[in-house]
Every structure is written in C-alpha cells, then in structure tokens.
C-alpha cells in the first residue's frame, strides 16, 4: 500500500509547479470571461465607429450612448422606467396568477383540457403585435390595454410549462397518494404542484423577458410615457444615442427581473434549481 500511494503521487508532484501557477490564472480567466467579452465588444465597437467615421445617427459609439444618458433629466428617466416596469410587472403578475391554476386544471381535467386547449392555441397564434392596436382601441388609453398586451404575451409559456410539469409527476407517487386516500386537493398541492415547480420556474424566467417585450410593444402602439414611447420618440427626432440608452435600460430591466426570479427560486425552492441534483 505505501508503495502504491507513492507512485500514484509521483506525476502529481512533477506537474505541481506549473499547475500551481496556471491554475489560479485559469480560474481567474474563467470567472472574468463574461466581463472580458463584454468589455472587448464595447472596445471594438468604439474603435470601429471612430476609425470608419460612422455617422452618429447610423450607429453611435458607446461613449455617445453614455453621454446621451445625461441629456435626459434623471426624473424623466425615472418616470419612463417606472411606467414600463409597472406595466411589465402588472401584466406578468396577472399572467402568473391566472396561468398557474389554469395549467394545473388543464393537466388534471380532461374536460377542461379538451375545451380550453384549442382556444388557448388560437389566442397564442395571434401575433401580439397585430392585436395590440385593436386592444388599445377597445380598452382605451389607460394602463389597462398595456397590461392586457403584456399578459397575453407572457401567460402562454407559463400555462404550458405548468401543465407539462403537473403531468410529468411520477405515476407511482399518484398511486401512493391514491393508496392513502388523501384526496384530489392534497394530491395536487402536496405532490403535483411542487413537482411542476422546476417547469414553472423556467417558464417564469423566460416570461420576465417577454413581459418587458409586451410592455414596450404596447407603448409603441399607444402611450405618452415609458421606455418604448421614449425610444419611438427619440428615433423620430433622430436622437439615436438616446434611443440606444433606452435600449440599454430595457436590457438591464430584463436581466434584473430574470435575476429576481432566480433569487426567489433559490430562496423558496432550492431543490428545483437545475444544479440541485434531484435525480431526474
């Protein structure tokens, strides 16, 4: 045994000197890679615009976009951001509240699935951008049409994922539930719904981005504030750097909402995270 360990550790000892140097460097690179890529792209962009003298109304340099941030008053930014965020969040929450129970019902009732599913497919097949003007005409000029548009674009993925997750519950667990005569309610709340959580959370993550898309589309159609409105107005006055700045804020908003859902999942259902290793 002692001989064995000795020979086994030999190659390690030889390679340990360069490894001791390279390992942390590679680790650093690995951790910094996303940031470095980002900085690299910005540098190439800035340099390209400068070298080829691209007109600012075609493609502004990152420095122009940054400068544009200060051309608009901070309180005005705040108003636009809040308008878009409010519509995105309200539409998103409405979609969540309706889509999850609906998904459960579709997966557990054959009758509902037969009657509601075709209807949902038809609604989903309508391009949201095309119905947005109609909804605005129908529902007036308040936040309501914008919330409905956001709702329409976000809720379908949540319904489908919830239904899929609920239906994917191992049949043995349903048999266990039946053998205990626990009742349909507990079967859904204690087994089926928790089992669907990984599915539901991945849909909730995708839908954050869709919610921002929905809010912006609605603002393009009819609004007097919001980042979508701001971008539309800026481009019509050829204030392209300002439009880009609005876009940057939308990206940050999407990422922030996505991260928020990830955090909620990490706190309330850590086992459902892809790295949780649930054995499925």
């Amino acid at each position: 045994m002692p001989d064995l360990t000795k020979t086994a550790s030999m190659p390690n000892r030889h390679s340990s000197t360069p490894a001791r140097f390279w390992k942390p460097v590679l680790g650093w690179l690995d951790r910094l890679a996303p940031g470095l890529t980002f900085v690299g792209v910005l540098a190439v962009w800035q340099l390209g615009v400068y070298l080829f003298r691209v007109p600012i109304f075609l493609l502004p340099a990152p420095s122009d976009i940054a400068a544009a941030a200060f051309e608009t008053e901070w309180w005005l930014w705040g108003r636009h951001i809040w308008a878009t965020l409010r519509v995105a969040l309200e539409g998103y929450l409405l979609a969540t509240v309706i889509a999850i129970p609906l998904g459960v019902m579709l997966a557990t009732s054959r009758l509902l699935s037969r009657t509601l599913y075709p209807l949902l497919i038809v609604i989903q097949s309508m391009p949201v951008v095309a119905i947005a003007p109609i909804i605005v005409v129908t529902l007036g000029s308040s936040d309501l049409p914008r919330i409905v548009i956001t709702f329409l674009i976000t809720f379908f993925p949540i319904v489908v994922s919830t239904a899929t997750g609920v239906a994917a519950t191992p049949p043995e667990l349903i048999e266990l539930s039946r053998s205990l005569r626990a009742g349909r309610g507990r079967e859904i709340t204690q087994i089926r719904l928790p089992f669907a959580l990984p599915y539901i959370f991945s849909a909730l993550k995708i839908s954050t981005t869709l919610a921002v898309v929905g809010a912006v589309v609605a603002e393009f159609v009819a609004a007097d504030q919001g980042l979508g409105y701001f971008i539309a107005i800026s481009t019509s006055f050829f204030r392209i750097p300002s439009a880009f700045m609005g876009l940057v804020i939308l990206v940050v908003m999407s990422l922030g909402l996505f991260q928020l859902v990830v955090t909620v999942q990490r706190i309330f259902a850590p086992w459902s995270l892809p790295t949780g290793g649930t054995g499925h």
Partner: peptide, 30 residues
C-alpha cells in the same frame, strides 16, 4: 385502498423537496 397496506415501488419515488425524515412521514402529512 386500505391502511393495512404499505407499498414500495420499483423506483424510490421520494419527494425531492423533502429531506429523508420528512419523506418518511409524508404518508401521514398527506
């Protein structure tokens, strides 16, 4: 179904959100 019967399936089919102890008491909770 009756209480006189306990079932062990081919797969363990434990609930991934419960620890071992909570999985064992799950029939009562359910």
């Amino acid at each position: 179904p009756r209480d006189e019967i306990g079932i062990v399936f081919q797969k363990p089919t434990l609930l991934p959100w419960y620890n071992t102890r909570d999985n064992v008491v799950f029939p009562l909770r359910h």
